[in-house]
Design a protein around this nucleic acid. Sequence first.
RNA 1: GCCCCCAUAGCCCAACCGGCAGAGGCAGGCGGCUUAAACCCGCUCAAGUCUGGGUUCGAAUCCCAGUGGGGGCACCA
Length: 851
Amino acid sequence: MPRPDADAYDFAAIQEKWLPVWEELELFRAGREGDTRPRKYVLDMFPYPSGDLHMGHAEAFGFGDISARYWRHQGFDVLHPIGWDSFGLPAENAAIKRGADPREWTYSNIAQQKRSFRQYAPSFDWSRELHTSDPEYYKWNQWLFLKLYEQGIAYRKAGQVNWCPNDQTVLANEQVVDGHCERCGAVVTKKALTQWYFRVTDYADRLLDDLNQLEGTWPSKVVSMQRNWIGRSSGADVEFEIEGRDERVTVFTTRPDTLYGATFMVVAVDSPLAAELAAGASTEVQRNFEGYLDSVRAESDIDRLATDRPKTGVFLERYAVNPLNGERLPIWASDYVLADYGHGAIMAVPAHDQRDLDFARAFELPVRVVVDTNAPVTGVIPVIPTDADGNAIEPDDLPPLDPASTGVALTGEGRLINSGPLDGLSKSNAIRRAIEILDERGTGRAAKNFRLRDWLISRQRFWGTPIPIIHCADCGEVPVPESELPVRLPDAAGLDLKPKGTSPLGAAEAWVNVTCPNCGGAAKRDSDTMDTFVDSSWYYLRYLNANDDTRAFDPAEAEKWAPVDQYVGGVEHAILHLLYSRFITKVLFDLGYLRFTEPFTSLLNQGMVLMDGSKMSKSKGNLVEFASELAAHGTDALRVTLAFAGPPEDDIDWADVSPVGSAKFLARAWRIAHDVTSAPEVDWSTGDRALRRASHRLLADAPGLAESYKFNVIVARLMELVNLTRKAIDQGPGPADAAVREAAEVTAMVLDLFAPFTAEDMWQRLGYEPSVALVPWRKADPALLVEDQVTAIVQVDGKVRDRLEVSPKVSGEELERLARDSAAVARAIGEREIVNVIVRAPKLVNIATRG
RNA sequence: GCCCCCAUAGCCCAACCGGCAGAGGCAGGCGGCUUAAACCCGCUCAAGUCUGGGUUCGAAUCCCAGUGGGGGCACCA
């Protein structure tokens, strides 16, 4: 039937109608004076203002908004803020290209994205909006830096750092992916520079151990990625005397039990130790060493990362002394030992370490077995292999302990041999005992090492937070006094922002030349800026007092709102941002500003939006544009489509979903509100029972579904309810029935999670004032959740043979009797003997027979 | 090389503690409305849960092995 225009669902008109009303009401301002509701903090990872919103934003912010709206409907005062991660390289690159100010590019992008956000209608508290590129924000970034500096957590050191030749800046370890720059993809090289670091390794143990708290509320994938990244290994530091050198050399090993099997020592070719040892050797060795070092330096990181490459190295003609047995160990330099892990030197035990074995075989160095991996170990049940006839294969067929000829290192369990006092001990006992012996002799101790490196935070860029340090020839590093913060960025006008390997800030003469706050002499500002991950490491706290210019945040507000209850964002930050935030949170805890140690109580990673199975990109021509989808289908249909597509953490292929289908569903729901003819005062209890039960089942199930992120299932359940309501109107009790109104109201309340415009319009149509977003969900009536009749299944030998309509309160005996009386069941049993009857009243009877 | 996750109608996905494989959608089919088509409305179709074993009265669900797909770490001593 063609419908008159007044009855047509027009998403554009509904959006136009409600946006100004909502803005006027400021519905989502959190923390109002006198609000006594319990609180929730729901946070989306803040966006980088790259141009306009895209489908990825639509998905992530959609899920965040579902969560925020859900908690409001549960009666919470919800803090759901938004801001902009607005420092960073793209602004600078755009500025270089167009000769403009990065500021201008950034803030006009923000304005554009805000316009799109307005249409998309997430329930943000806009009064707390922040921009990390505002001096009002980065002032506190500098404050944070100074706090870390006071604690010795921020420090400067020289070293070989990751260098992106394209962006002309250094990178943190976390920003190098497979040897490539995480941002631009260029091959990363090494450069010797003095840079600022944060001592994240001091927190490595806590960062690792506290992951246990997040188990279950963070995606297990993220937890395991962080564990891998931190990479703790425990063992011992062992000190070796070096002939012709006063100081001992310390090496880290996870296998101190194999000390008697050490046959040589290897130092990282690019370490200062290698250079020093070579310098003390013959000129020929020095020449070899220099040649080798040059060849290693010429190799890219990519080559170095390749596995299975042959071992290379040079003998330094120097010797170390094994602290346990006094043996002389030749010292080699090689690139398979890393200068910045452990102590840049290792004891090589070729029999029990594959890398050492490969090296030993390449240079014909001795291999000595000290763990008998064929010996049975207590607590390990020996597996006795059998041959084809089932006869046990005799132990003399065990593989020989000969790694030198097999080429396979013996890394398994076993018992120590050829190891003096350790002989006969199992691997783990020998490790313990070896550490004791080292301790007693003062030549070693238990030690831990981490894969995690300190966080390099300096960047040779313009568009970032200036590091608040002044370099004075007489006083050295002098922190800018807190009262002089912020150290503002100079005007970009007149500055050459082109990458040239040093910060563009260094050329801003008037800015960089200052007087030393300490001695008043001539001094220079540090011209580097901070990694933008510093900005985002604590932004969740700034939202609590976004407009307070007297402090970074108020610990009392943190006490009220933080940590974040629900964090939503992409898995691409599994290590980077999330690790840094966890670290800074722990630092602020130690400084007494916070009373919790983990920033994000639970985390949801949304999947990606794909098109035809692959990532969308302009070059592939498979781009689905947010703006055009929004214009074509409207905000609500877009949001419903994304929520309904599947579990939020799964990728969504746009080819598999139907925004048109979502729009149809919304129109159906909306029309129901128009069909309702009863008044809001109608007595629910008079309504159709079957429809009422459906409404109350949804009320009962929706909270559990929402809290386990099963948004797609809630949408499906809404569709089910809408279908049932339609049927009740057309073919059942009719539009005047109280249950129809009740179902329509429940639909509006739950639909608000996904389709706020449609829900609001339904709500008004049903006779209520805005906003449905603030209405607490009703509690399900338990009386409506129990069925009058349930279907019990009767199985014979696990196969369904009959169904019985019974009362939900039926007794086991009664149900069994009914089942035995069934003709279908009797037929299925036939002549066979019944051996067992399992009764699970009221749902099931299973009759097991013999044969 | 090591570790982790996933596999259900043509497609996207549900299925509580192991208890009727189906909630919902897309696509398809039939019908109604329409001069006609679209929209809309109604009805309908479809898999035995990747393969092979095991545990169990009973397995999509638990265990083992394999296949296929996705991800993380990888010369870290």
